[in-house]
Write a protein that binds this DNA or RNA. Sequence first.
DNA 1: TTAAAACTATAAAGCTACTATAAGGTCAAT
DNA 2: ATTGACCTTATAGTAGCTTTATAGTTTTAA
Lengths: 135, 135
Amino acid sequence: MRIGQLAQLVGVETQTIRFYEQQGLLPPPDRQDNGYRVYTEKHGEGLAFIRRCRILGLSLAEIHELQSYQDDPHQPCTAVNALLDDHISHVRSQITALQALEKQLVSLRASCNDDRGVEACGVLAGISEGNMHQQ
Amino acid sequence: MRIGQLAQLVGVETQTIRFYEQQGLLPPPDRQDNGYRVYTEKHGEGLAFIRRCRILGLSLAEIHELQSYQDDPHQPCTAVNALLDDHISHVRSQITALQALEKQLVSLRASCNDDRGVEACGVLAGISEGNMHQQ
DNA sequence: TTAAAACTATAAAGCTACTATAAGGTCAAT
DNA sequence: ATTGACCTTATAGTAGCTTTATAGTTTTAA
């Protein structure tokens, strides 16, 4: 199959596929005489793996790491689990930070209604004076 | 004061200050005969405002918008509040998305203990087979 | 006094994960 | 013959800095 079909199959853009190849995440496929890339089902699986990892928020570097584990199936999967644990704790700290941020924003927003001029705006004043009780 | 002192005062790197100037977020300061930038207290306040906005997660474009409101204090502050409301809802949807992601990651992680080879790893299998019940 | 350390300047590249644009070659159908 | 859809490479743009390179200036220590 050619790049456009693969792209449609997995739901990515063709440029993204070329990008992954260039980044070493997808093996370079064979070429037709005219230079067109020819993909196999294996490539489709590889690409789908990458996309699922991306949906899970893994970085390309982390995906690369996972691929290296896949290529060497004899080692224990401790490293895979550790990578995921790291990622989970990363996501959790993001959530915590965003929740704190939301609280701050809401309290800032509560300091002004819409019926003022900018010079009396509680929001701008709040930011300017720096009375942002940081966590 | 020179750029290094300003940087230390506000807690940013000197390059960041030059970057903000280049982006039009910080007015170009006067220069000494040797070309060194000379900052006033006003610059310090402006820079502190920018940093507080950044801590609140506002983009440079949004900060630019806020600055334009500051420069024109006669208009009502509806726009300021709208900007903040938008940002709050953005943060909230980020939180929701991350919480869904966390659930997914935790359930994936639960599909494997550490005592397997990579070829039997529940995590890798889970990603590969795509049994990720998406939201 | 001089040499090193610390500071300043500009310009350009690097980072992440793509997306978009440009300029062109290939192929099937009209 | 030419239109349209597809493919190729190379390059630039996105956000918000950070890093690197190269060079000039000031301050401090020997």
